[in-house]
Design a protein around this nucleic acid. Structure first.
Lengths: 253, 253
DNA sequence: CCAAAAGTGTTATGTCTACACCCATGA
DNA sequence: TCATGGGTGTAGACATAACACTTTTGG
C-alpha cells in the first residue's frame, strides 16, 4: 500500500508525506538463438555514467504508460519489432547507488525473438551488438550498472520458462524442424537431449507441434530432410518437455 | 539502463534528462496456514485514498535501503517478525492512476509465516485482520488500489514456489507431522493428496525430512500419534513433490 | 557407396497411483 | 471394541532412457 496506518518502528526523521523521488526505468533482456548458441542484444552507452560501455537496452517509464507498455516501447525502439508476445517481467532492482546520479529503480523484462540478426543490422553497427550470453555471464563482456546480475536472473528465468511455458517456440520461426526446437532446449539448459525421445515427447499428444507436410532443406553435409512443423495451441498452457504429473487422489466413497 | 543511446521513436516532447518522478513502495503479501486454510494479513488504511479499506501492508522504499531490505522492514513493522527467510519478490506494478495522488510503482513481495495468529493479536485488533485468501480472491473482501490483482499474482506464485522451492516448510513449525506438511500442499493447490504416497515422496531420499524420534499428540478424536520431523537441508534446492527428471543423454563414444 | 542427419521400434528400468492392510490412540 | 487417523506393502499402469535399426539425402 502507499501510506502506512501503523508507524511502529519508523524513525522520527522519516516523514511519509515527503516520499523520496525515484526515477523508474524499464530494461529489456532480448534473447535469440544464433549459430546454435544463446545470444542477447546489447547497446553501447552514449552518455555518462558508464559511457561507452555495453548495456541492456532500456529507458524511463512514462507516467502515462504501464510497465508492460514501456517494455514493449523499448523493445520496438531498439529492434523495430513490435510483437505482442513473449515479454515477461522477471524482477525489480533498486539497490542504493546502482546509478551514481540518482535514485533509480528498474523493472526488468525478458523478450525472446527469432533471428534478431537482420534487425540489428538495421541500426548503427557500432551501437548494437548481438553477444553470446555465455560471454556475458562469464564476464568476458562486462556491462554497465548492475546489468550483469540482471542478465544472470534473466537466464535463470528463461530456463524455468522453457519448462512451464511455451517460450521455446518463440525462439524459432513460424515453421521449424524438431532439431531446431531441440537446439533451443539444449543451448538454454546446456544439456544434450536424445533426439528420438524428444520427438516422442512433443509428438505424443497432438497440440504441441502440427506437421505442415513440407520438408526442410538438408544441411551441406547431407542427411535426411526434416519435416517442418508449426506450433500447436497447447504451448499456451505449458511445455511438453519435463512435466509434472499430478498426485491427485480421486474423490472416493 | 538509465539513459538511451538511440532515441529513434521517442517523441520530441520527451526529454530524458527530465525524468518523471515516481514514488516507489514495497508491498508484502503475508501468508500463513490457519485452521487448514490459507490466510493472509491485511491492514486497514488510516488515510485517503481508500481510507478505512483493507490493504496489503507496505510502505515507501527509502533511497538508502535495497528493495529486499525495505520488504523486510515492512514485514517486521507489521508483524514483529524479523526472519531472514522466505521473502520473495514476485512482481512490480505501475499502471497509470493506480494511486490517484501521484505516480507510484510498487514492488510486491511474498512472505510465508508460521502461525501469524499470535503476532496479529499484538497489534491493534481493529487495524489488522487475518483473512482467508479464498475470500479475498472471490471478492468477498475487497482491497484498496490494485491489491486484489497483486494477491492473485502472489497466490499464483506461491503455488509454483511450492513445487520448485522449499517454501512449504516455511508454513510449518520447526518440527511438524507429515499430515501438517501435506495440508500445506492441499490447501494451496486445492487438491487432495494420497497420504501414503506423499509420505513416500518426502521420505524417499533422506534430506527432505528428518525424524526427531518424538511423537505428536493425537487429535481429540484419537488416532495413532504421528511422528515429528524437522526440515532437512535438501529443501534449499527444490521440493520433493512433483519433480522433473532429466532427459539427459550420457556423453558417449 | 559412405557419411550424416532424420525418424521408428523396442526393451529394461524406474516411478506413480490406487488401495489393501496393519498399528496406536481416545472415547 | 469401535472409530479415527498414522504408517507399510504391493501390483498394475504408465513414463522414461538408452540404443539398435531404418530412411533419405549430399558428395
Amino acid at each position: 500500500m502507499e501510506t502506512k496506518s501503523s508507524d511502529a518502528g519508523v524513525p522520527a526523521d522519516y516523514d511519509p508525506a515527503q516520499f523520496p523521488a525515484f526515477a523508474v526505468t524499464v530494461d529489456v533482456v532480448i534473447l535469440t538463438m544464433s549459430d546454435g548458441e544463446l545470444h542477447m542484444l546489447l547497446v553501447r552507452r552514449g552518455e555518462a555514467p558508464y559511457k561507452g560501455m555495453w548495456a541492456i537496452p532500456g529507458g524511463f517509464k512514462r507516467p502515462t504508460e504501464t510497465l508492460d507498455e514501456a517494455a514493449r516501447r523499448e523493445l520496438a525502439e531498439e529492434t523495430g519489432v513490435d510483437v505482442a508476445s513473449m515479454l515477461t517481467q522477471f524482477g525489480a532492482y533498486g539497490d542504493p547507488g546502482r546509478d551514481p546520479r540518482m535514485n533509480v529503480v528498474t523493472v526488468a523484462y525478458l523478450a525472446v525473438l527469432r533471428d534478431v540478426g537482420v534487425i540489428v543490422a538495421g541500426t548503427d553497427a557500432t551501437d548494437a551488438l548481438l553477444a553470446p550470453v555465455a560471454g556475458v555471464l562469464s564476464g568476458q563482456v562486462d556491462l554497465a550498472f548492475d546489468h550483469r546480475q540482471i542478465v544472470r536472473d534473466a537466464i535463470e528465468r528463461v530456463r524455468v520458462e522453457l519448462e512451464v511455458s511455451g517460450i521455446a517456440t518463440a525462439f524459432v520461426g513460424p515453421t521449424f524442424t524438431l532439431a531446431e526446437l531441440r537446439a533451443v532446449y539444449e543451448a538454454t539448459w546446456g544439456v544434450q537431449l536424445d533426439a528420438a525421445n524428444f520427438r516422442r515427447s512433443v509428438a505424443a499428444d497432438a497440440g504441441w507441434v502440427i506437421p505442415t507436410g513440407r520438408l526442410a532443406q538438408p544441411g551441406p553435409a547431407g542427411g535426411r530432410p526434416a519435416e517442418l512443423y508449426r506450433a500447436g495451441r497447447s504451448w499456451k498452457h505449458g511445455g511438453p518437455i519435463h512435466r509434472l504429473t499430478s498426485q491427485r487422489r480421486p474423490e472416493r466413497k
